[in-house]
């Protein structure tokens, strides 16, 4: 059984009086362990698609099945629990909490799980920060970091709880190409070590090359779906 299945997913946004059909019928299956990129021009619906998969929005029409659960049937509380345990998010503009240190920002994701021991929390947070290259920045506040470093914190935050699926909306948009490659290496390593499934959107062909499967969106439809060898 696939980890994620979308069937006839449509999303219509109301922009004033105009209806915008951001997704026009998406059928998609993602297997556990995939490392998939979503490409496509601006406005093609990449962000919208990731938000649907991340249960942050419900589709206007269609069905999303995550890990055997039909998402539209779950109440809000259970969706929150599903995100908490199984989904990691990496945002284009980091969204770190400014009053918390680097360590605490990452710790928050793990704390929410509730059943992790203190010692293990520390170990895991420190390890993940080291592996994204922030071992020396643990006690900094976000405003003392560069954009690239902030994004690495946000990646560490998404990965620290070892979720089943990580969704990243243009994770490298604000990073230089060297850092972008480092970040993709970390993601790939997690993908291989923990069989975490990754779906990320990007405009960058170099980043796209890391993906094992490449999807291309246009006008809210998947126009290409190919394996990368």
């Amino acid at each position: 059984m696939s980890l994620l299945k979308l069937q006839g997913v449509k999303k219509i946004y109301q922009q004033g009086r105009v209806e915008v059909e951001a997704l026009r019928g998406i059928d998609l299956e993602i297997e556990a362990g995939e490392f998939t990129s979503i490409g496509g021009p601006s406005g093609s619906g990449k962000t919208t698609l990731l938000n649907m998969i991340g249960c942050l929005h419900r589709p206007t029409i269609g069905q999303i099945i995550f890990d055997g659960d039909e998402i539209e049937k779950l109440p809000k509380e259970e969706l929150a629990m599903l995100r908490r345990h199984n989904l990691g998010f990496i945002f284009q503009d980091y969204n770190l909490i400014p009053v918390l240190t680097v360590y605490e920002n990452v710790e928050l994701a793990l704390r929410l799980l509730g059943d992790v021991e203190k010692k293990e929390i520390k170990e895991r947070v420190v390890n993940i920060l080291k592996s994204v290259g922030l071992g020396d920045y643990i006690n900094r506040k976000p405003n003392e970091l560069s954009g690239g470093q902030k994004q690495r914190v946000s990646i560490a935050r998404a990965l620290v709880k070892e979720p089943k699926l990580v969704l990243a909306d243009e994770p490298t948009a604000n990073l230089d190409s060297k850092t972008s490659e480092d970040v993709l290496e970390v993601m790939l390593e997690m993908n291989q070590k923990l069989t975490t499934t990754f779906i990320f959107s990007t405009h960058d062909p170099q980043v796209m090359e890391y993906a094992k499967r490449l999807l291309t969106l246009k006008d809210g439809k998947i126009i290409e779906d190919r394996k990368n060898s």
């Binding site: 942050l56 809000k76 929150a80 599903l82 945002f91 503009d93 969204n95 909490i97 929410l112």
Partner: peptide, 14 residues
């Protein structure tokens, strides 16, 4: 607001 959106994405309940 953005931070609250992020917290919801992290799985915080209302």
């Amino acid at each position: 607001t953005k931070e609250i959106g992020m917290m919801k994405a992290l799985g915080l309940k209302e």
